[in-house]
Design a protein around this nucleic acid. Structure first.
Lengths: 323, 323
DNA sequence: ACTTCAGTTTGCAACGTGGCATGCCACGTT
DNA sequence: AACGTGGCATGCCACGTTGCAAACTGAAGT
């Protein structure tokens, strides 16, 4: 059995409470006492029991990161940063995957983790704004990547509309006129996809729209959709993809059809995943500041409760070889 | 405040203990009582307090997954599967990143998480076998991806030597004779890299060896090393890369130098990450059965304590476009 | 009638910690 | 000498749960 406060107290010849005071850095402990207690702590290898501490304090030091899939590179990179930054703040991150399933997202909103964590970083996919409003749970919640003004919940996200406008505008600036948007989510309430679509439309103005739906946002979806798109009567000369994964699938499709990128077809992605820096050619993309997003989100969680914040994280367009 | 057992007990007119029995599915509860209690639970929205439960039971339901970096695709994919399988077993996964730092790995071995988790899945990078043997911590530990017979700890890994032999053998079978191995870790005690090197050497027999060291196993490392390699006097006609990431960096380097893969240069990777299926051309790779690895590792954690197991997970060579 | 026993319910105690209030002491001030 | 003050140490209790053992019930066995 691990040593407990009582064991340390006996060993050091002080009360349990004094040991607790030392452990917690309480102010009024005589230096000599502190030293003696610390020696006993080291000698016995005492470590506070987290369960007891949690029970007493009501805080766990855990934060849940809820994402559709942790093996999607964007979320993996976001998770890596979140874990690092959380650690610096004495927090530990646990991972929940929803697989983009609305039911599972609802569960999370309604307290599936409320006993276990001090806060939830939630990257929603399919859940309706009404569900957010109807949330019963009281655990601090921060939405990641959503930014559609749904009241009552903290948000951290880049300006998706502006970013999509820039991406599309960049394709226009390079002389493209038949620009497709790849990544529409017809059935889903996904706010992010809607905003990127809005930005695309704004930039396009009166030019013909070419809006391609996909089931999910993975490479395979981008690949499949792009093959179809290239086989149709009037294929586009550029595609704005809502994720880098889609873009990489599309890039592969272009290669399958013998097209040269960016000459025959320009591509812009979204997310700036590591992968896109080493594709051939390297992927032009919108780069959200993931470090900043993670940081701001954790700030929100630890901040004093107040009116719901809506925080905009920075992004920039990174032009590389596909455009 | 959340309702507790006492509140439910009062509401249902039974003792606290009986409510606990219902919650825990204890056998001897009269159906009528169970129903009444369950109704009260639902009415009040009772959820067990995990901290109290943990304190009492001594188990947390948490498992730590310790990896060098969660945003490395192989580990992200492994994590995704681990989280899914763990969830089915009522376990929650928390993520620790070591960044390949020996100090941090040691911390984990010496109980950094022992209070918080029921078990640790540890994917070591730099830690010495001696550290493993000197482990003081008693939390169940399973090593992932190591398999060098270090006594005293459970292992789950594929047969890295055989896999590397197959990969190299495949390149030989396609007529290559000047085959490099990319991914050597000269300074590190990393067992995985050593085993893959051993397999490479076995397959090569008396053919000339070309063993290329890299600092880490990322795309950038593969890219850099491959550029150097291609610029030297006698460049190889094939490269066996110790990870897919290295291979993708190498693939990019080949493109940078105007080489055609696989005609001018064949590549084989290792890990079968999603990314490699959509590169141009698609990456030939060794595919470890990640689902099986996650499953076996969790089996180990939950199994009765016994003599250290050394479990070999299946793998297969997936031939695609780069060879 | 008495024991036995499975089924059912219960009270008590303890898991290890930290909040609170209090007590004690030494020292300087009035 | 009495008093106030700040530094320091401590005991009691509650956080919400579950293990344990005991108690009670009614029916079946002797």
């Amino acid at each position: 059995m691990n040593p407990k406060l009582r064991d340390v107290a006996e060993h050091a010849g002080v009360s349990v409470r004094t040991v607790s005071n030392v452990v917690n850095g309480f102010r009024y402990v005589a230096p000599a006492t502190r030293e003696r207690v610390q020696a006993s702590i080291d000698a016995l290898g005492y470590r506070p029991n987290l369960a007891a501490r949690t029970l007493r304090r009501g805080r766990t030091g855990l934060v849940a990161l809820v994402v559709p899939e942790i093996d999607s590179p964007y979320f993996a990179e976001l998770a890596a940063r979140t874990v690092r930054i959380a650690e610096r703040r004495g927090l530990t991150v646990l991972i929940d995957q929803t697989d983009g399933d609305a039911e599972r997202e609802k569960e999370l909103l309604h307290g599936r983790r409320s006993q276990l964590v001090d806060g939830v970083l939630f990257s929603p996919w399919a859940v309706a704004p009404a569900e957010l409003a109807a949330r019963t749970d009281t655990v601090p919640l921060v939405l990641l990547g959503e930014h559609d003004g749904t009241a009552g919940v903290d948000h951290v996200a880049i300006d998706n509309v502006a970013a999509a406008r820039e991406a599309t505008g960049h394709l226009l600036a390079t002389g493209r006129r038949r620009i497709a948007a790849l990544g529409i989510q017809p059935e889903s309430l996904n706010a992010t996809a809607r905003q990127r679509l809005a930005g695309y439309r704004e930039a396009l103005g009166d030019l013909p729209r070419l809006e391609i739906p996909v089931r999910r946002l993975h490479r395979a979806d981008g690949h499949r959709a792009m093959l179809e798109l290239l086989d149709c009567a009037e294929p586009p000369d550029a595609v704005f993809c809502f994720t880098d994964e889609l873009a990489l699938g599309a890039l592969r499709a272009a290669a399958d059809r013998g097209l040269t990128v960016p000459d025959d077809l320009a591509l812009v992605g979204f997310d700036d995943i590591e992968d896109g820096r080493f594709s051939v050619p390297a992927l032009t993309t919108v780069s959200p500041d993931k470090d900043r997003i993670a940081e701001l989100a954790l700030d929100c969680l630890t901040a004093e409760p107040g009116p719901p914040r809506s925080i905009v994280a920075p992004h920039r367009l990174v032009v590389r070889g596909t455009s």
